[in-house]
Design a protein around this nucleic acid. Structure first.
Lengths: 106, 106
DNA sequence: CTGCATCCAGAAGGATACTG
DNA sequence: CAGTATCCTTCTGGATGCAG
């Protein structure tokens, strides 16, 4: 495949709207690797991300239906995040990105 | 495929470093559709992008080896942009993004 | 532990003018 | 036509502190 069909543009823009945001792809990647992660684990795994960005980006991903937030009524609180079905449909893109990254590193 | 191998992270981060920037994916997408575009055509196709953003993002893509800039010594000037070999290796990712966008629109 | 509120620096973005 | 430069406004992102 060397070109794209221009008619795909609406779908493309739609997809972009979900991953726009500096940290979205990193968060989705981590959840794709580990399936379920607590808030603090995400914070540690996504290096350099700040508190504020993690919570705001997670909230957007949740609103977009990409991520599922499961809260346990405990003290201290425990919240687990995982990819939704929709979020898992994104995994092939992550695989392609990894392949691309590996190719250009050689 | 339901999970990712964590060892892919370096490649993943490498790939992200190239597409970070609000307009990079849009620009690459247009060049993947049309193969060759003049500066003004890109400006028209990537809706909403400003003069300033287009030139700066194109310069970064060129420095990253994703895009080839061909300048014709004419008056008035003519400059054509196209994807490099490296840039064309990115096309599978665009296809996956389009598929994803199409799926979630249904 | 998880998440929100606040303040602030820096980046993004718009408009305009200028050059070869 | 294809940029660069400048000024200004808006908004994103970072640091910190507070709360349940």
């Amino acid at each position: 495949m060397t070109t794209l069909c221009p008619s795909t543009q609406p779908a493309f823009v739609q997809a972009l709207s979900i991953i726009e945001g500096k940290w979205k792809l990193r968060i989705i990647y981590e959840l794709a690797c580990k399936e379920v992660l607590r808030y603090g684990e995400l914070k540690n795994n996504v290096c350099e991300i700040t508190h504020k960005m993690l919570s705001s980006q997670l909230k957007e991903l949740e609103q977009d239906g990409m991520v599922i937030r499961k809260e346990y009524p405990q003290v201290p609180p425990k919240v687990e995040y995982s990819l939704s079905d929709k979020g898992r449909r994104f995994i092939p893109i992550l695989n392609e990105l990894c392949s691309f990254g590996a190719e250009i590193s050689m």
